[in-house]
Design a protein around this nucleic acid. Structure first.
Lengths: 255, 255
DNA sequence: CAGTGGTCTAGACCACCGC
DNA sequence: CGGTGGTCTAGACCACTGG
């Protein structure tokens, strides 16, 4: 399989021939990718059957299947035998818990309750604007959020969201928000969180952070800096999460 | 693609037909996997060309390629266009550094120097014997190892190796050992480290640990508990690595 | 240049799903 | 049962690698 530029020009805006040196299935995948990221097919819904897609594009079944396989590997599509090929739904949430074990072994990890401690509209810092792809001086929505299990605080989060995409969240009452933000982003703002990158590091809690987590100032903590992206690869959330370092646990595979 | 038992019976010890409900390429892959893990093809060497393999097994080229694709996805094989299909060489080493940034950004991460602080043969604990697949009361080789960059200690390791597989390391002078253990395992003991699992957690240094890392007792540290496996999936090393928590940094992808 | 894997075709048939 | 994706075939031709 050739290594190809996965972000190459979609066919909608170009000719109907693969670029020189590009495989036919890579080209097909680009076209399908564009139709997905531009919202022609909504997350959770099925694409047309492969036989039809192959006919439409004038290519053999096997070739079309190679294109679909690329998009499956990218995480954009999901195939279900006997049912169809579906655009993947966004991330469900609660994924921060994979870095911590707040309960004893064996217990099920329930979704933590969420409470919004603060919400404000502010000017994006240079770093924030850069990461979110906003012009200098753009405004952002920032949240302070505490997550608790059985009433015990466990994670403290600072979240930055671009405006105006998330304007709907600046208005609604934070009392009514869900425990999971990503499904709410989807429902209220039509934004799908498709992929995220978490950078882990270690630090000590400030006095205020410690107070909110009911720990002492200077207590060791693990910091997770998340950058979240939508289907089109646009950054749509910056989040910093703090949790007790003694509850930290994570397993990585090496190959 | 069907979800299949990747460890199912190799064909060498069974009939020449796929098990009922198993695909032909899955069956083929099992056979090839067995020939690789049993050492018929050595890591780093090439398999016969696909056309030949397909003919030998009496199957179409496409089917054989699907089998090879499975083994590539497993990390057992590596295909190189125009050159051949190769059994993957083992892990190179230095992979612990991916959890830490001991140098300033931009600097290249050199391989740390290694010094063996202690080496001994001991009775395996119950946990060790269990993990390594040894009978109760078996003996193991244990190492204390300090890794340094520019003469500054950075990682302290405790390593447990099964005997008699690693008997050659119990004899040779530790002065002459390489900075990287895995290539040495390969060269001296014929053991290939193919895959590993690292479990991260957080703790505080004991007085002795701190002394060796030139930090204070009680200094925060990140602990990496590694379990390493050979091509056949046998556990062949247990390792616990300690490093300064303030140097910890790791990036994970969410999808 | 000979030998390798990569792409593509056009078709047959199988296995799974939901009605 | 009809519709979906999954498996398999037999072949042609392309693209990369190394001597």
């Amino acid at each position: 399989m050739l290594i190809q530029d996965l972000t190459s020009t979609p066919p909608a805006a170009s000719g109907d021939q693969p670029a020189p040196g590009q495989s036919r299935y890579g080209w097909l995948a680009s076209g399908l990718r564009a139709r997905i990221t531009q919202g022609e097919w909504i997350p959770g819904t099925a694409l047309p059957p492969e036989a039809l897609l192959a006919k439409e594009h004038g290519v053999a079944l096997g070739t079309l299947r190679q294109a679909l396989a690329l998009l499956v590997a990218e995480g954009l599509l999901e195939r279900r035998h006997g049912r169809g090929t579906f655009v993947r739904a966004g991330l469900g949430g609660a994924s921060m818990l994979r870095f911590f074990r707040f309960r004893n072994a064996g217990e099920l990890q329930a979704t933590p309750q969420s409470s919004i401690l603060a919400r404000s509209v502010a000017l994006a810092s240079v770093n924030e604007a850069d990461a979110l792809g906003l012009p200098a001086g753009a405004s952002v929505l920032t949240l302070e959020r505490l997550r608790s299990l059985d009433g015990r605080p466990c994670l403290l989060e600072h979240i930055t969201l671009p405006l105006p995409a998330f304007a709907a969240l600046a208005a609604s009452s934070t009392e009514d928000w869900d425990d999971l933000l990503y499904p709410m982003y989807q429902r209220v703002c039509g934004v799908t969180v498709h992929r995220a990158q978490d950078q882990l590091s270690f630090g000590l809690l400030s006095a205020e952070q410690a107070r909110r987590l009911q720990l002492e100032a200077g207590h060791p903590c693990v910091q997770v800096q998340r950058t979240a992206f939508d289907l089109a690869g646009r950054c749509i959330e910056l989040r910093t999460t703090l949790g007790d370092a003694f509850a930290f646990q994570y397993t990585a595979q090496v190959r």
